[in-house]
Design a protein around this nucleic acid. Sequence first.
DNA 1: ACTTGACCCTATAGTAACTATAGATATTAC
DNA 2: GTAATATCTATAGTTACTATAGGGTCAAGT
Lengths: 142, 142
Amino acid sequence: MKIGELAEKSGCKVVTIRYYEKEGLLPAPERTEGNYRLYGAKDLERLGFIMHCREHGMRPAEIRDLLLFRDKPRRDCTWIANLVDAHIADVDAKIASLELLKKHLERLRGTCGGEREGELCGIMRSLDDRSCCASCGRLPAS
Amino acid sequence: MKIGELAEKSGCKVVTIRYYEKEGLLPAPERTEGNYRLYGAKDLERLGFIMHCREHGMRPAEIRDLLLFRDKPRRDCTWIANLVDAHIADVDAKIASLELLKKHLERLRGTCGGEREGELCGIMRSLDDRSCCASCGRLPAS
DNA sequence: ACTTGACCCTATAGTAACTATAGATATTAC
DNA sequence: GTAATATCTATAGTTACTATAGGGTCAAGT
């Protein structure tokens, strides 16, 4: 199949498939006479694996490692469980950070006096004073 | 004060200060004879405002709008409350998405048989089958 | 045969919000 | 005077793609 069909079957965009090839996640496929990429069932499976990993928040570099393992499984796969554990911890940290951010934003929202006078805008005044955030938990810079 | 002192007092990196200047968030400051940037108290306040906004997850473009308002307040500041509301909604969506991701990751983690045999690695097998995710909520591509 | 349109190709640049590097100049400390 | 530190500019790198430009290939219709 050509790249468009692979894209449709996998749900991955054409440009992204080419990108994955350039990044070494997908092997360079055969070409037709007219220099079109030609894929088979294995490529579709591999791309499915890649997308499944991406959907789980893994980055291309990690996926590359997983693909190496997939291509040539070794006896010990403990590191894979560790990788997933690390991702879960990562996600937990992000959630916690966002919960804190939400708290800050809601507090900020609460300082809107609703008096519709620019100079007195409560939110602007709150933003002017950064020290307020020191008390209730420092937000990460990101 | 010079840029290093401003960086220390604000907690913002020197390079980031220069970046904010280039992006138009900070005005081009005076210079010494030796072409060093010279800042005053107002710059520190403005940078504090910027960082406070950043800590609340606002992007430079939004901060630019807020700074324009700060420089020249208009009567109506409803849009500022709306901006904050939109951010809260945004954060909520991100949290929900991460919660779902966490659920998926934990399920994935649970498929590790712990049998330490590469070919049978449960996680790898789960990653091979993307259809499992269709049932319990599609993960966003990001 | 010709043209239209859909699909495909490569290479390059753009995205966000910085960060890192290289190479030059200025100031400060000893 | 010299060495270390701080600053300057300009450019490129980061992530995971996406967009654009400029062109080639292929199947169908006239």
